[in-house]
Amino acid sequence: MKARLLTALVVTASVTCVGCSTGDSRPVGGDVPIVGEKVGVDVFHGDKFDLVDYVTNKLIGDCMAGQGYPQLRDAGITPGSGAFSGLNLNGPEFARVDLDHAERTGFGHDQKPTGQRVISNDPGFDKANEACRAEANGKVGGEYFTVLGQMTDLFNQMSGEHQNRMSSGDSADELAPVLDSLVSCLERSGLRPVKPGERTLAAFRVGVPQGHLTGPEPAQPKRVPGTVEVLPPQPARKYVPTPEESKTAVAALNCANELGYREKVASVQSRELRRLIGANETALRDLTARIDGIAGEAAKLVNG
């Protein structure tokens, strides 16, 4: 079993951690190219966080198993992806889908299947977990959770600031007529705002899911004191929009395509993100360098 786990780690490291052992040569801060779907990797080095998170989770799982708690390890610890991808900017989601998707899913989201879920009602498990977490952190250099917390704070602060910049100043001025054109198009499509006269996307419920998920509800834990529960995997669930939601999603997509709305919004998003990265360059350089170093330690652990 252990050999299999190590093989998986090596494969992941070779895919996601090129250059870990010699330092990362990719540009940072203001030199980073803004590619919508790669901001998390290029700007925040999310792939390095993915790798270290996976390695520490593996270490914690093995450590817990050694303490008599194999549940986390046995539930399956798999490589994560998409750390700090929330600023991957490519225009609004409702304008990026195709017509079939808009009609079938509206503004909702199918739920993907999930794996086993480990729930502790056992103070012994919790105490061991805390100790194993500290041990894993030590093995990758001792500051992973500190850097993770600092990058989380920086990311969230930048995400908020990006939103502020999008909704004020020259960006808001530039996008106001674009938004107004979209609203006019929605009206021409026969849609009416919830509050008469209100010319916002929210008033037309664009982006707002109103339907429901089908299929069985997730299992509920029993919460018996002194036990560690493992909930079974949850199968995928389909989202079913309301007819009104589906109609709105199709109209919004058609209007967005007709007006080039997604591209116009994405262009302003990119410009503002570029400015924001420049304003936070020092902190980004510091934190990305530190996570690169930690990822190097993690890769060494994997490679033995």
């Binding site: 609004p92 989380t152 996008l175």
Partner: peptide, 16 residues
């Protein structure tokens, strides 16, 4: 959160 242009604005929270 959905902003006024229909974008999802995200913040991340690790399980710490």
């Amino acid at each position: 959160n959905i902003d006024q242009y229909g974008n999802w604005v995200w913040q991340h929270y690790a399980n710490d």
